[in-house]
């Protein structure tokens, strides 16, 4: 199956290190095994490098199915166990609508519009609690 698959990404997805932050850019359709590989790679890289943040750019991904959605949620969960925060960046409107219609609102996931905003979010000193919705507003 994976040999016959003519599509773009098979095997490893490069994980770039920018200081304390790891940057992963996903392009095109992601094969299930590749997604799994990425999950393992990220866990190991975080543990080895002691990174405090992970940025996953999915602006090049046209289809996010329930599997990839779960993988993203799992990456976020395992990263927070390793004391790193995960931000998913650049989700397309069509993808967001599909995920919501599927009922996958991914509540544990941090999101940002662009890599720049994500880096800003990660370098901010206050490690805010899970979702932005519960943030306190001071009057």
């Amino acid at each position: 199956m994976s040999e016959a698959f003519p599509g773009p990404v098979t095997g490893h997805v490069p994980v770039l290190r920018l200081g304390e932050v790891l940057l992963v850019t996903l392009q095109g359709d992601l094969h299930d095994s590749t997604a799994h590989q990425l999950q393992e790679d990220l866990a190991e890289t975080i543990a080895r490098s002691g990174a405090t943040g992970v940025v996953i750019d999915i602006s090049g991904v046209e289809i996010v199915d329930s599997f990839l959605g779960r993988v993203l949620a799992e990456i976020a969960a395992q990263s927070s166990l390793l004391a790193a925060r995960t931000v998913v960046v650049g989700m397309r409107p069509a993808v967001a609508i599909t995920l919501v219609e599927l009922g996958l609102t991914l509540p544990g996931l941090r999101t940002a519009l662009s890599t720049e905003v994500a880096m800003e979010l990660l370098t901010r000193p206050t490690p805010s609690s899970r979702s932005a919705g519960t943030r306190q507003e001071s009057p």
């Binding site: 995920l99 999101t111 940002a112």
Partner: peptide
């Protein structure tokens, strides 16, 4: 709720 969830997935509050 759906609209809010979709916007949040894209990184907007």
């Amino acid at each position: 709720m759906k609209t809010v969830a979709a916007a949040r997935l894209m990184g907007a509050e």
